[in-house]
Design a protein around this nucleic acid. Structure first.
Lengths: 196, 196
DNA sequence: CACGTTTTGGACAGATCGATACAAAATAGG
DNA sequence: CCTATTTTGTATCGATCTGTCCAAAACGTG
């Protein structure tokens, strides 16, 4: 009965996500979002309510895409704990290599959001905190397995080591945005993994 | 002959620096800067030319304050290389503890700037790159000394280890902004230092 | 084919943005 | 005390921001 939408909602959300990812929340105008999605203002507001609501949906989409694929690597029981951690860092570096503009990485939308918004946007802060917890839990589990198997020799608490790796990942993202090249990121990752 | 300024320029710059630090570049309005500094628009524009110019000066001030004091720790020849690195991380954590708002860290203005602006503000990117290079050089030197003295046992290239530590520092800043508490930051730091 | 419903485009509202204009106030030197 | 010079407060500029309004277009259905 109603007139159907002339666009794919997920596709539009994806374009919006990339725009927020590349430029941040504040620096992305609603007109930028129109251009990126190819939609008119009415369609955007009719579908996504507001810029802030659209950002939250884009952030959720980002964490679902990224974290789901990363957790799949960490939960792959066909591989050893150590190999899973290496796979994770390989994937992160491959992602950084893929998403470059002017010899700089785009970073990670959750890191960018933490830095730009966490202090004054409670909803955004909660979304990234929830995502971070999922990743920390998975990391902790894998590290525990590695310790049990004698593959990881650091005697530290697995949860602590997980937070350490998580911090290194965030640091790699920042380094990539600062212009660090792929070999540099790889060296950082290897140093971190050796610490376990 | 001229009428003298009724305010202290450095003090105003300091207030502006703190505002950019806490809220980021885009989210800081010129009116915010007026309120923070206590100055009128005319005084700000008369003294600092533009918001962007003021930001650059604030960023330079930040890097001078922070990096100078941190390099002093790294170059303190009365202490061993390992102790100097521990001193650095202690100072960073003490700084994080000092600058909290709503149980979150403010992060680090250079990290925040890298994330928010490096991709589209060449001047800001160059300022943070220059600061980062200073820090990397000092770290590399100290790590080299530690290796020569047999205090640090990792056989890795000192410059690589320096980039690793730098990434961990950035990651700690992000973690602090995400709500990590001080013991967590300390654990991350200790894990990183053990890797050397 | 006509109706009910939704989408869509474009104009526009209200607020806020960074920056400027200008006159009054203030000061050190003559 | 007067003058030259700069600062300062206020008003305001034009641009841009997010979000709304409304009429016309487009579709599934009876």
């Amino acid at each position: 009965m109603p007139r159907p939408k002339a666009f794919d909602e997920e596709q539009a959300l994806d374009a919006a996500m990339r725009t927020f990812w590349a430029n941040g929340y504040e620096a992305t105008s609603t007109e930028d979002l129109c251009r990126a999605t190819g939609l008119g203002r009415s369609s955007i507001y009719n579908t996504f309510t507001s810029k802030h609501e659209l950002f939250k949906r884009a952030l959720v989409r980002y964490t679902n895409l990224m974290t789901t694929s990363q957790l799949a690597l960490l939960e792959d029981e066909t591989r050893s704990a150590k190999d899973r951690l290496h796979d994770l860092f390989d994937a992160i570096i491959a992602g950084e290599e893929e998403n470059r503009r002017d010899d700089r990485g785009l970073g990670c939308l959750t890191v960018n959001t933490t830095v730009e918004l966490a202090a004054r946007d409670r909803e955004a802060a909660e979304l990234v905190a929830r995502d971070q917890q999922r990743r920390l839990d998975a990391l902790t589990t894998v590290i525990g397995i590695g310790q049990r198997d004698g593959e990881l020799t650091s005697g530290r608490d697995p949860a602590e080591l997980a937070r350490f790796l998580n911090a290194v990942i965030a640091g790699m993202r920042v380094a990539g945005q600062g212009g660090a090249d792929i070999p540099t990121l790889r060296a950082i990752a290897n140093t971190a993994l050796d610490a376990l």
